[in-house]
Each structure stands twice: as structure tokens, then as C-alpha cells.
Design a binder for these strands. Structure first.
Length: 447
RNA sequence: GUGGCUAUAGCUCAGUUGGUUAGAGCACCAGAUUGUGGUUCUGGGGGUCGUGGGUUCAAAUCCCAUUAGCCACCCCA
């Protein structure tokens, strides 16, 4: 049988795992620095937990897990004979793979509300699954790294989440722009355009601004039935940008806009835009698709990556309402591990890694030397020094070949000569230098 | 879900207007080389040409169907 993988999934080799861990460790350490606590949730959730949370399109993209056992006899026979997949689904599948980390977090929070601190800061780094068509930088199984705060509407958390974005990308050496906007500003602009009652349609159109530009957006507004005068006003506000004094005035003339401006002022006071290594700016064209955002929204864009966003997030007022746990405000951000990986790969941004962690490989010339080598190796291991032995006295060509394959930095050659004088011939694989060393010195050198 | 491109050795690919035994590089194995590899040289194994059908004296090559992968759109990380 010819081996292959399901669509949109990948294996990770040793070197890739080291590179991925490098990214995850930086993100994790930064989350920890800000006091976020780790949780994990199952790959599978009940389908009822997942369905209806991501819109119709999201429901389509959910992986459903077929029930075990004789699922056909228990299936909805009417739906089955009518070939109605949507109606059939609940009777043949009760579980699905998680689509993101936010909904499982909301479920977790609701279930454990009594055991968690009043304000809960959690992070979670796990794979999620989407039955999307794979393409460049997009997979059906991919990792998200989320940090969320539940139980407080303080802008302190928006501030620290922006700082976390900044720190992580600074440490990774990726230059980014942190785009910030407020859903209530969007509401104010939608009102301005006379599209207050078509808010979602308005935001999806606005979200395309980057791609279709001012003219394209003009057309989208017309399609939505926006009048010429209103279009002009709307385009004027968006092109002039938030920092323009007149624009601020216009926004403040609506109650939603006034609230948003107040929050952004507060964010400024907290220093969210100060002392960052990367650029952060209010961008009126940032919309973010997810419908549950209600306050500030963020998106991180790499410079010239052509990969879309490297992460995003925002404030959602009623995170857990659907799980009978009302009035919990949340704010969170997500890092897209795959795109960060591709960005670093493209700019050669990873440190050098070896596939193996071994610092030395023992190479025995004869059976007697193999035992001698294993004995030395054990002593290194007991001292916490990663090391290994080539398992048979093969030709040196073969042994060196293996040393190269595992990218071990040093080899210890052992033959009769070395044994009798109680040393090994320690050779540096890069420089080719070689000299005899005793066990104690070997340990010192490899520490 | 919509559109486009591709499918030949483990990997990357060549293969002329349809023509005799389908090739290269990399990788793998062995030897040149029984205490010092990475270079070089020699030899070797490995293919139902994605699958099914059709046209033809003859198909990797042309036609139809089908499956899978990639790219773009929608949406997203």
C-alpha cells in the first residue's frame, strides 16, 4: 500500500519539531511572564457545543465524528431516505473536532466557574481542525496559541495583550504592524453610511478594503444600497483616518463612537501604544470577521509576508452566555503558529538546530571498545550529558555517516590504543581537530 | 462550495509530430578504502507512466471518465 496523508495534514520531522518548539516556547514564556495559566481541552467536543458558533460557513467547515457502532440503524430514517444530510447529521454524529480554542475555553469556563479565580487568565496551545480547502499557509490541522482573559472588562488586559504581541514578535525577530480598531467605531461608521441595520454586511465589505482598495469598497457600498452622499462621507472618514481631529469629532457624534473613542483614550493612558518595538496603530479598515467581537479588535500583519495575518483577537462582551453563564466579558488574542513558521523559514529567522540532542557519539573500532564506549556513555548520561553509542564496530565510513546524519557536534573514537591509555579520541566535527581526553575532561568539555 | 493547473523511480523532474528495451539528478546499497567520513570514481537495486475505459498496427504521449494533489476565489490562522 502506498503511504499518504489525509488532505491538509502534515508530519513534522525532528528538525521541524525543534523549530516549532522554538516558536511555542517564546510564546509560552511570554504568556507566563504576564501571569497566564495553561489549560488543555479535548480534541473532540460535543457537536452541540460547536455547532452554530461560527456561522453557517463554520458549521460546514466543522469536522464531524461518525458515531461508533451500528450508526445506520439508529439514524433518522426519514432524513436518510430523503438524502437530507443536514437533517441526518444529529442522528449519526454527536461529536466533532474543535474548530478553534475560544469556544472550548468558554465551555471550560462555564463548567468550572466555581473553581476558577474571578478573573481567569488562560493560555492554550493546541491543534484545531477545519475542513477548509488547503492552500499556501493553510491546513486542515493547524496549531493556535491563544491567550484570553475572562471576567473583567478592564482595558488593562487589552494593553497587556498588545504588549504580548509586541514582545513575542520582537523576540522572534519578525517585524509586524499591530492594527487596532473598535467594533463600536465600525458601528458608528456604519451608521454614518446609513447601513446601521446591515452591520455585518458592512464589516465584511470593509474587511476587503486591503484587497479591493477605496474604489472597490465604493462599489461594495453601492451594492448595499448606500446613497452617494453617505458614501462620500464614509470614504472621507476612512481615508483620513482616526488621528484626524475632524474624524474624531464625527465619530463622537454617535453614542457608540463616543464610547469607543473614550476606550481608546484610556488605552493610550495605559501606555498601550508606547515603548513598543513594533508599530501599533488605529486602523479604521480593520473589521475582523468573527461576529462575536464587541469591543477593541486586533490583527497582526507581518511586513511583506504575503501570508495574511499572523494573529488576531479582540474583546467579546458575552463569551459564555450560550453556556448559561451570563455577563462574563472576555478579551483574547491568537497566534497563528503555521504562518509564523513560514515567515521565519522565509527570512531564515531560526537559530541553528541539530536533529539529535546528543553532544557526542562514541565510535567503537572493535567489540571490546563497544563495551568500553557504552560504559563511558552511561557515565555521561548519569551526569546529564546527552550522548549515544554507535551500536556495532562497523567500518568508520558508516559510523561517520551516521554521525553526520544526526548532526552530532563531536565524536569519540575508541580503539585498542585509546582503551589501554584510558582515553577517547575526541574529534570536533566542524573543525576536524582531534585529541585524546580522559573521562573527567570529556565531561568538563561537554557540560 | 466555484474556477485553473498538475499526476512518470523513495524525492525533484525530463521524455520530440503517437514508434522499438521509459531516462537524469538526488537518495539508498556495495566496492575502490581492515584506525579517520563528508570530495571523487565504479557497479547495483528499484517503475502496473494516478486509476478505469476508448481511438490506433502501435499510447507515458490523443480522447472520455474518475481519483488525488497544488494554486486562486469565498472564508480564515
Amino acid at each position: 500500500m502506498k503511504p499518504s496523508l489525509p488532505k491538509g495534514t502534515r508530519d513534522f520531522g525532528p528538525l521541524q519539531i525543534r523549530k516549532r518548539n522554538y516558536i511555542f516556547d517564546i510564546i509560552k514564556d511570554t504568556f507566563e511572564t504576564y501571569g497566564y495559566q495553561p489549560i488543555e481541552t479535548p480534541a473532540m467536543e460535543k457537536l452541540e457545543t460547536l455547532m452554530g458558533k461560527y456561522g453557517d460557513e463554520g458549521d460546514q467547515l466543522l469536522f464531524k465524528v461518525l458515531n461508533n457502532g451500528d450508526f445506520l440503524s439508529k439514524a433518522d430514517q426519514d432524513a436518510l431516505s430523503a438524502q437530507d444530510s443536514n437533517k441526518l447529521l444529529p442522528s449519526i454524529s454527536k461529536r466533532g473536532l474543535r474548530y478553534d480554542l475560544t469556544v472550548p475555553f468558554a465551555r471550560f469556563l462555564s463548567m468550572n466557574r466555581n473553581d476558577l479565580p474571578r478573573i481567569f487568565k488562560r493560555y492554550q496551545i493546541q491543534p484545531v481542525w477545519r475542513a477548509d480547502r488547503p492552500q499556501k499557509g493553510r491546513f486542515q490541522e493547524f496549531y493556535q496559541c491563544d491567550a484570553d482573559v475572562a471576567g473583567s472588562d478592564s482595558l488593562v488586559y487589552e494593553t497587556e495583550l498588545m504588549e504580548i504581541y509586541d514582545r513575542v514578535f520582537d523576540k522572534l525577530g519578525i517585524e509586524v504592524t499591530i492594527r487596532v480598531n473598535h467594533r463600536k467605531i465600525l458601528a458608528a461608521i456604519a451608521e454614518l453610511a446609513g447601513l446601521g441595520n446591515q452591520f455585518i454586511a458592512f464589516t465584511t465589505a470593509l474587511d476587503k478594503w486591503d484587497k479591493i482598495g477605496k474604489e472597490g469598497f465604493d462599489g461594495e457600498l453601492k451594492k448595499l444600497g448606500c446613497e452617494d452622499g453617505a458614501i462620500e462621507k464614509t470614504l472621507d472618514v476612512i481615508t483620513k483616518g482616526y488621528e484626524n481631529g475632524k474624524v474624531k469629532q464625527v465619530l463622537e457624534s454617535t453614542s457608540a463612537g463616543a464610547e469607543a473613542v473614550k476606550e481608546i483614550n484610556q488605552l493610550n493612558k495605559l501606555g498601550a501604544f508606547d515603548g513598543l518595538a513594533n508599530k501599533a496603530k488605529i486602523d479604521l479598515t480593520l473589521a475582523r470577521g468573527l461576529t462575536y467581537y464587541t469591543g477593541l479588535v486586533f490583527e497582526v500583519e507581518g511586513k511583506n509576508t504575503g501570508l495574511g495575518s499572523l494573529g488576531g483577537g479582540g474583546r467579546y462582551d458575552d463569551l459564555t452566555g450560550i453556556f448559561d453563564y451570563p455577563d462574563i466579558s472576555g478579551v483574547g488574542i491568537s497566534f497563528g503558529a503555521e504562518r509564523i513558521f513560514e515567515t521565519l523559514e522565509a527570512q531564515n529567522g531560526f537559530p541553528e538546530f541539530s536533529a539529535s540532542s546528543s553532544r557526542v557519539l562514541f565510535m567503537p573500532f572493535d567489540e571490546e571498545s563497544l563495551l568500553y564506549s557504552y560504559n563511558w556513555c552511561t557515565q555521561l548520561r548519569n551526569a546529564g550529558i546527552p550522548s549515544e553509542v554507535y551500536p556495532s564496530p562497523d567500518k568508520l565510513k558508516k559510523q561517520f555517516r551516521y554521525a553526520e546524519q544526526i548532526q552530532v557536534p563531536k565524536v569519540a573514537l575508541v580503539g585498542e590504543k585509546e582503551r589501554t591509555s584510558n582515553v577517547v579520541g575526541l574529534k570536533d566535527q566542524k573543525t576536524g581537530e582531534q585529541r585524546d581526553v580522559e573521562l573527567e575532561e570529556l565531561m568538563e568539555l561537554l557540560k
